[in-house]
Nucleic acid binder design. Structure first.
Length: 586
RNA sequence: GCGCCUGUAGCUCAGUUGGAUAGAGUGUCAGUUUCCGAAACUGAAGGUCACAGGUUCGAUUCCUGUCAGGCGCACCA
């Protein structure tokens, strides 16, 4: 509809220039927008005001000329000039009703488009280290990433959703060592747990399963384990040195095979839990990409060689540095430490290179906002390897600050103090939790009040939308109880009976849906879809309270039932994208 | 100190890429069931869009500065 109006304006402008009523100029992009106020018609165009400067004429004068030259079309009921020079279009009644037929015909496909047809996008999100279960902080990224993915699918992209598993590196060694020490305790050894170890209860249960499986086969005496280990921080030492020494000792005493058993027990149990939590949260993945596989297949080494050949690395203080400053980063970054170990950044370079080489047209990373300083160096590495950096887009999700009532909740994986995503879901439900997360724009700091989400879950806006859906279903249950039926054909033929203000409002709200989906996809803003659904639900509830759908007059009744079915369809389509269920009864 | 994000109603937040009289939920107050589900609806009150300049027909939106909050500035991940 917008495109048709644009064309009409453009034609009118060209006519005017041809007739010398306006001086010659390049026709700018014409903007048509939906009006906020019904008094301004359905669509408005601000072209007259935009042209005022170039044409050196009063905007209202330009608008008058334009309107006089507009070709009449049957779908336009009225064209008006208003305010400083807006051109307002009012659509004819029949045009607004057409959307109902479109919705019924297209069903679940209504609102989908083909803008991204033939293009592939990879979306990587959450990717939390498998050193502990997902907590409510990860929930926001999970909800945001999965809805962004769904939106991109809705506009036709071929979407590949991926979780990058950091199953290598020092943090995982700390986890493995933590598990082993807890195992020793479970076998009856007495020891002082390192202050930098993972202290969560889940480590205890992994240790217990290790003992169930291997008995005392992995046992070493505490005195042997702690022999020669530097002091921990509380005793005046350095906590990092302390834990690193314990890792080294664990590897030495156990040997590679046994150490791997401990390591894998931690990794597999935690990762398994993460996969379950995400699946239960309605977040699906197409691939779980292992960092270890990246190292074992030599891809990290290859990326480093590539950078060396491009003369983008240099050696200093025993380490290899990447010249990221050459591409605008604040400082150069280490890729190989003086002890010969590659850094996390080295893996990430290889991973991003791998992503681009897989041939995606676009690669989207969704990160927590605390990683924003990381963007320049990753982009720098891709530039250094002559990749198309523009293909990579990094979306940042701001933190959700957790509150319990008015009290802030401190969270840390290391200390084991956190509310898990699973606990949240079990208490407030998948639908409410997802909707809550996705209601706020991602670049907004968010206050997540657990008390509110838990205790007042009935006030959660998700129920408002779901209730609208259930209410339509209820109307149809009532209909059949009365021995009546919906006749789609009769309804579609009599849509002109929908003349009430509430019906007009609902019709134009329904017509907006496809635009909402495509703009939410283009701007990566799931929250705008959530807000739209609340607006649509409101229009429906208002209508419901003002008018009866099941009435004596058949033509009117069927027309209203048809409108209401269309509304239900759009709500269901929108909720599906959000990953929220659309219940028939609540 | 430098960089990124943010500042809109008592509280939590939208604001269609620069448009017309800045909106919703919640909270407060006052109402609505002989009627398809009251998890709903109607009305009222509530604002110096942090502050000060600038750009232009027009600024909550863009630019600059100030103030305030969050995050980041590792041979950690």
């Amino acid at each position: 509809m917008k495109d048709q109006l644009k064309e009409i304006i453009k034609q009118s402008l060209m006519q005017l220039i041809k007739k010398d009523r306006l001086p010659k100029f390049d026709i700018p992009a014409i903007e048509i927008e939906r009006t906020k106020d019904k008094a301004h018609g359905d669509f408005a165009c601000n072209i007259a005001m935009m042209l005022a400067r170039t044409v050196k004429m009063n905007p209202r004068q330009i608008a008058t000329l334009l309107v006089e030259n507009i070709v009449q079309a049957d779908y336009i009921a009225e064209v008006e000039i208003a305010g400083p020079g807006f051109i307002n279009f009012t659509l004819s009644a029949g045009t607004a009703q057409q959307v109902v037929r479109d919705i019924l015909e297209q069903g679940p496909k209504f609102g989908l488009s083909k803008h991204g047809k033939g293009k592939s996008v990879q979306v990587e999100f959450v990717s939390a280290n498998p050193t502990g279960p997902l907590h409510v902080g990860h929930g926001r990224g999970a909800a945001y990433g999965s809805v962004v993915s769904s939106l991109l699918m809705a506009v036709g992209f071929d979407v590949h959703r991926e979780y990058y598993v950091n199953d290598a590196g020092r943090q995982m060694d700390i986890l493995a060592t933590s598990v082993w020490l807890r195992y020793l305790e479970a076998c009856g050894e007495k020891l002082i747990f390192p202050s930098n170890g993972y202290k969560g209860g889940y480590v205890l249960s992994i240790a217990k399963s290790l003992k169930d499986k291997y008995g005392r086969a992995l046992l070493k005496e505490t005195s042997t384990v702690y022999d020669g280990i530097p002091k921990d921080e509380p005793k005046g030492g350095d906590k990092e040195e302390h834990v690193d020494a314990l890792i080294g000792k664990a590897k030495d005493l156990l040997g590679p095979d046994a150490y791997k058993k401990v390591f894998d027990a931690g990794l597999n149990q935690i990762l398994g839990g993460i996969r379950r939590d995400l699946a239960d949260f309605g977040t699906e993945y197409d691939e779980w990409f292992s960092e270890r596989s990246l190292m074992e297949s030599g891809m990290v080494e290859k990326a480093i060689v590539e950078l060396k050949e491009a003369e983008m690395l240099y050696q200093q203080d025993g380490a290899w540095w990447f010249k990221s400053t050459a591409f605008g980063d604040e400082k150069d970054r280490v890729v190989v430490r003086d002890n010969g170990q590659t850094t996390y950044f080295a893996s990430d370079i290889a991973y991003h290179l791998n992503k681009l080489k897989r041939g995606f047209d676009k690669v989207i990373d969704i990160w927590g906002s605390d990683h924003h300083g990381y963007i320049p160096r990753v982009k720098a590495s891709l530039s250094a390897m002559k990749q198309k950096v523009d293909k990579l887009e990094v979306l940042l999700v701001q933190f959700a600050v957790l509150y319990r009532g008015s009290e802030k909740v401190a969270m840390s994986t290391r200390s084991g103090q956190f509310v898990t995503l699973r606990e949240l879901r079990e208490e407030v439900g998948k639908d409410a939790a997802r909707f809550f997360y996705v209601l706020r724009s991602a670049d907004q700091h968010m206050d997540f009040d657990l008390e509110l989400a838990k205790s007042q879950s009935n006030d959660n806006p998700v129920y408002y939308v779901q209730y609208a859906h259930a209410r339509v279903c209820s109307v149809f249950r009532q209909l059949s109880e009365r021995g009546l039926a919906w006749d789609q054909g009769v309804g579609e033929k009599n849509l002109e009976y929908l003349t009430e203000d509430h019906e007009q409002a609902l019709l134009s709200m329904l017509a907006r849906y496809p635009e909402v989906v495509s703009s939410a996809a283009a701007a990566y803003t799931p929250h705008s879809l959530a807000h739209y659904l609340m607006d649509l639900a409101r229009d429906f509830h208002t209508y419901y309270n003002a008018h009866q759908f099941i009435v004596e007059e058949q033509a009117l009744s069927q027309a209203r039932l048809t409108l209401v079915v269309a509304t239900r369809q759009v709500i269901a389509n929108g909720l599906l994208i959000l990953g929220v269920s659309a219940p028939e009864a609540m």
